[in-house]
């Protein structure tokens, strides 16, 4: 039994290209417009969609993503509504993988068992929970795997070769390499640095490796797409939302940028 994420990477491999992974915060700037954006992402070129679950205190993210969380929370977004929007998305798209990314507290408060069964029923494929390292895997990561969902682990430049095996041990779907020691939306790592890290990770896992943090342009996306299995783009999309909160054509602005990034990824190899 394979997951949508596994099938997507298989087809990307067949096309001999990397994937474009987009990140946007659910319900940003409000649940309605947020859903319009979500619906249009696959057509604009997103191969995998990460949906940020709003949390008041995203300590590993930059102020821009924290602000997007606060906008969404203020507009009434919550975890139950995130699942609802995935359910609605699945009515029109049953192939694009959806990964929920966020922090553990909203899930913990929702209830892990209930959340897993609701998420699965809604059509979620995997999770990135930033504050659940392997040391805290028993509560959510392992049950998620048992439920047939992917749990995607983050690795960082600080994750050395002694630690990598531990980190990828229970990883599934793909491995997310955080390319800088820093927060989202700050600066980009050099391609040669990233290349070395990706090679190192691949020594310990057969899973695809996606690279994120700091990718803002078509050129950067292309550069990463040459050396990794996926390029994750987040802050620059969130910035577009922040700068155009009240603009009726906001979704189109986002799609324009996604198309541009997708071009970069597609023409890289």
């Amino acid at each position: 039994m394979s997951t949508r994420i596994e099938r997507r990477f298989k087809s990307l491999q067949d096309e001999n290209r990397a994937g474009l992974v987009t990140f946007l915060t659910a319900g940003d700037p409000n649940p309605e417009v947020g859903f319009d954006i979500l619906k249009g992402l696959p057509a604009a070129g997103a191969d995998i969609i990460e949906i940020g679950v709003p949390f008041s205190d995203p300590m590993a993210d930059g102020p821009a993503i924290q602000a997007s969380s606060l906008r969404a929370i203020k507009a009434g977004m919550n975890l139950a509504k995130v699942l609802e929007s995935v359910r609605d998305f699945r009515k029109i798209d049953d192939v694009t993988p959806i990964v929920l990314m966020g922090y553990f507290n909203p899930i913990y408060i929702y209830g892990v068992d209930k959340f897993l069964s609701d998420a699965k029923a809604a059509g979620v494929d995997g999770f990135i929970v930033v504050d659940l390292p392997p040391e805290e895997e028993t509560e959510f990561c392992l049950p998620a795997r048992e439920a047939g969902l992917n749990f995607i682990y983050l690795t960082a430049p600080t994750t050395d070769e002694r630690r990598l095996p531990r980190v990828v041990k229970h990883a599934s779907g793909f491995v997310y390499f955080v390319s800088i020691t820093g927060i989202t939306g700050t600066f980009a790592a050099s391609a040669s640095d990233v290349e070395g890290h990706v090679a190192r990770i691949k020594k310990f896992t057969h899973l695809p490796v996606c690279v994120g943090f700091g990718i803002r342009t078509r050129e950067q996306a292309a550069e990463i797409a040459r050396i990794a299995d996926g390029a994750v783009v987040g802050s620059v999309l969130v910035d577009i939302v922040a700068a155009n909160v009240d603009l009726p054509s906001l979704p189109e602005k986002v799609f324009e940028l996604v198309r541009c990034l997708a071009d970069g990824v597609r023409l890289a190899r």
């Binding site: 930033v130 390292p133 805290e136 630690r163």
Partner: peptide, 20 residues
């Protein structure tokens, strides 16, 4: 040994911080 007081405590941090 995992840093918990009963169910409390722990190390709920991002991977970048974990080695530190």
């Amino acid at each position: 040994e995992d840093g918990h007081f009963g169910i409390y405590g722990g190390r709920y941090v991002a991977e970048t911080l974990m080695p530190l």
